[in-house]
Simulated scan of single mutants.
Amino acid sequence: MSFLHLVTIVVDEYDPAIEFFVDVLGFDLVEDSPSLTNDGRPKRWVVVRPPGGQTGILLAQADGPAQAAAVGNQAAGRVAFFLRVDDFDHAYERMVAAGVEFVTEPRTEPYGRVVVFLDVAGNRWDLLGPAGSG
Rank of each mutant, 00 (worst) to 15 (best):
M1G: 15
L4D: 03
H5Y: 10
H5K: 15
H5T: 13
L6V: 08
T8P: 01
V10Y: 00
V10N: 00
Y14F: 14
P16G: 05
P16Y: 10
I18N: 14
I18M: 14
E19W: 02
V22H: 04
L25N: 06
G26S: 09
F27I: 10
V30E: 13
E31Y: 03
E31G: 13
P34N: 07
S35G: 14
L36C: 01
G40E: 04
G40N: 11
R41C: 00
P42E: 04
K43F: 05
K43W: 05
R44W: 08
V46R: 01
R49T: 11
P51M: 05
G52Y: 06
T55N: 11
L59I: 10
A60Y: 07
D63F: 10
A70P: 02
V71K: 12
A75F: 12
A75D: 06
A76F: 11
R78K: 09
A80T: 08
F82M: 10
F82V: 10
L83A: 01
D87V: 10
F88P: 01
F88S: 13
Y92Q: 12
M95V: 03
M95F: 12
V96R: 14
A97M: 09
A98I: 00
G99Y: 04
V100W: 02
V100Q: 02
E101N: 10
F102C: 01
E105I: 08
R107N: 07
R107H: 03
R107M: 09
E109S: 08
P110V: 06
Y111E: 04
V114I: 10
V114M: 02
V114D: 02
V116H: 09
F117G: 12
F117Q: 05
L118P: 02
L118Q: 12
D119L: 05
D119C: 08
D119H: 13
G122I: 08
R124M: 05
D126H: 14
L128G: 02
P130F: 08
A131Y: 08
S133K: 05
G134V: 08
